[in-house]
Amino acid sequence: MTIKMTTHVILGLSLGAAVAGGCATSRPPSERLESSAASISGAQQAGAENVPRAALYLQLANEQSAKAKGLIAAGGGDNMKAASTLLMRASADGDLAIALADDDKDRVAAEQAVANIHTFEQETK
C-alpha cells in the first residue's frame, strides 16, 4: 500500500510539473503586467508628465507596456517571453519616473523653505 501511494504521488507531481511547465511559456506574465501598470499609474499620479526628465521615462514605460500588451494579445510562447521582458523594462522606467517626479517636488519644497526664511527675514528686518 505504501509503494502504491508513493507511485501515485510521483505520477501526480510529474504530471503537475509537466502541465505547469507547458503553461509557463504561453501564459501572460500577469505579475509583471500588474507591476508595470502600478509603476505607470504611480508616475502619472506623481505628476511625471509635467516634469521633463520624469516625462521621458514615463513615455518609455508607456511605449514598452503598449508593445508588451500587443505581444500578449498576439499570443504564443515567444511573444509572452518578449512581453515579460518589455514589462520588466517598463516597470523600471515607471519607478524611475515616479522618483524623478517626487524629487522635483522635493526640490521645489526645499527651495521654497529657504525662500521663506529670506522672506521672513526681510519682513522682520
Binding site: Y57, A92, D93, D95, A99, D102, D103, D106, A110, A113
Partner: peptide, 19 residues
C-alpha cells in the same frame, strides 16, 4: 535604471534634508 533610481532617491533625501 536601478542605479539611476538610487541616485535620484539620494537627491530626494538631500532635498528633504535642506527643507
Amino acid at each position: 535604471r536601478r542605479a539611476q533610481l538610487a541616485e535620484v532617491l539620494a537627491k530626494r533625501a538631500e532635498h528633504a534634508g535642506v527643507r
